[in-house]
Design a protein around this nucleic acid. Structure first.
Length: 467
RNA sequence: GACCCCUUCGUCUAGUGGCCUAGGACAUCACCCUUUCACGGUGAAGACACGGGUUCGAGUCCCGUAGGGGUCGCCA
């Protein structure tokens, strides 16, 4: 039997980081086994589902390269099919109409809590004569769950998990208005889509028991389940808006590369020996569910950033240049010459950047001149005292140089430092501040060579004193 | 509260009874490299939650305790 997995988000917000990891694991598992990875939008809650959320989720998945192998299934479009299954269960006596009122339900739940019993609804309509049904109440349809014994699920990640049937109640299949609930819809859709492995967050673990029974009631064989631990914030609590519970679009905006985010997410809760940097091809070859850890992992931006730096250094210069131009272009005019400088300096730039955001800012001086007085305090300090004067002096010393190459520039500047009895750093640093507006940049000769004689001389000779 | 799950350095983890004097990575600190910042290199500090068993031998198996998480909707 060929493996079929699916990622089934409900479109009530952005694609969050936990969802992205769930999608990744589903994708990897399917690829690993030569199966199919599908996407289903669980939009049965019409109140909370939005078009924007659907678009955000699809954008996020596209960015990560985790789009499904087929066009997404929209769950709401299968409502009739879901209801038909419920009707069939009703006809077969596997389900029943329940006329309990909201007040009855509340009272039962309250009584359960008060007595320290598990909160379970026991409907008298399970065994009552339908003829006694009140005419003015729209009934819900509940499935008949077994009331004695227990069920064990062999979860691929969690291992065997057993729950007594006294812990489960007859959950709702069809609402009072006849619409199917999530519990019914997932089972029917998964069965119809031929899903063989349900890989999802472990907040669904208890649902698995309900769904497992529903499969059996329908006469279908249940899929294998794999409930992966949730991602927690730095404080160990469930990821919320306060932590990194951001949409993947936010990570994209912060300047992370999709391959870095995927590698990071993969290593969160899963490992292959001591390997840290894992290509997608290796991930597909190595990934397996039983090796996924059972405990929640905390999200660590520092490690993500380090990994991102690694991928940045490996990334193609043209790609990085495009990404940089896109960011800088938001508030700067980047002409063709500037793009050429950016491309020429990219190797030196990317070696020092851990995020695209930092890369773009550190590349700014290739597009526009620094604005004086410098805002960067460390850079400003380099131009205090005789710093600015040294920069201007260097401008003069370089004016008549014939060969504007890194080698010639270096020779001339080193000679100048020696003449003045200064360490080279004393000359190079003010120059760096004057030319780039920063105290940190790629090699200063490389920068000067790329910027060109006229531009460098202009920046140097126009450097104002700093207090 | 009930039920289920989890627990190795600050963080992510390796570890499937002897190869563990518990390994790697990020972060931290020191040194080296060096025109800056990064990269890189070397080194330091840093963990088996606790208590009982089982066993010749336990981070690895069992039980308990503590702590953490998840679920208990006509949401998904």
């Amino acid at each position: 039997m060929s493996v079929v997995t699916r990622f089934a988000p409900s479109p009530t917000g952005f694609l969050h980081i936990g969802g992205a990891r769930t999608a990744l694991f589903n994708y990897l598992y399917a690829r690993r086994h030569g199966g199919r990875y599908l996407l289903r939008i669980e939009d049965t809650d019409k109140q909370r589902s939005t078009e924007e959320a659907i678009a955000a989720i699809q954008d996020g998945l596209a960015w990560l390269g985790l789009e499904g192998d087929a066009p997404p299934v929209f769950q709401s479009q299968n409502a009739e099919r879901h209801a038909a299954v419920a009707e069939k269960l009703l006809a077969e006596g596997m389900a029943y109409r329940c006329y309990l009122s909201q007040e009855d339900l509340d009272a039962q739940r309250e009584a359960c809590r008060a007595e320290g019993r598990p909160v379970r609804i026991r409907s008298p309509w399970r065994d009552a004569d339908p003829a006694d049904a009140p005419a003015d109440v729209k009934p819900v349809v509940r499935v008949k769950m077994p009331q004695t014994g227990e069920t064990t699920i062999e979860d691929l990640v969690q291992g065997p998990v057993t729950i007594g049937h006294d812990q489960m109640d007859d959950f709702i299949l069809l609402r009072g208005d006849g619409s199917p609930t999530y519990m019914l819809s997932v089972v029917v859709d998964d069965a119809d889509m031929g899903v063989t492995h349900v890989v999802r967050g472990d907040d669904h673990l208890t649902n698995a028991f309900r769904q497992h029974h529903l499969y059996q009631a329908c006469g279908w064989s249940p899929p294998a389940f794999a409930h992966i631990p949730l991602i927690h914030g730095p404080d160990g609590a469930k990821l919320s808006k306060r932590h990194g519970a951001l949409g993947v679009d936010a990570y994209r905006e912060m300047g992370y590369l999709p391959e870095a985010l995927k590698n990071y997410l993969l290593r969160l809760g899963w490992a292959h020996g001591d390997d840290e940097v894992i290509s997608e091809a290796q991930a597909i070859e190595w990934f397996d569910l039983p090796q996924v850890g059972r405990s929640a992992a905390r999200f660590d931006f520092a490690k993500l950033e380090n990994l991102n730096g690694h991928y940045m250094r490996e990334a193609d210069d043209d790609r990085l240049t495009d990404l940089t131009v896109e960011r800088l272009g938001r508030d700067l005019a980047v002409d063709a010459d500037a793009v050429r400088r950016l491309r020429a300096g990219m190797a030196g730039l990317k070696a020092r950047a851990n995020t695209l955001a930092y890369l773009a800012e550190s590349a700014r001086f290739y597009v526009e001149r620094p604005r004086f007085p410098l805002e960067n305090p460390k850079a400003a300090k380099l131009l205090q005292g005789d710093g600015a004067a040294i920069a201007r002096e260097a401008g003069e010393a370089l004016a008549d140089i014939d060969d504007w190459s890194e080698e010639a520039l270096e020779a001339r500047l080193r000679a100048m430092a020696e003449d003045k009895g200064l360490g080279f750093g004393k000359v190079a640093q003010p120059l760096r501040a004057a030319i780039t507006g920063s105290n940190a940049s790629p090699g200063i000769f490389e920068v000067m060579a790329i910027l060109g004689r006229d531009e460098v001389l202009a920046r140097l000779t126009e450097t104002p004193d700093h207090e």
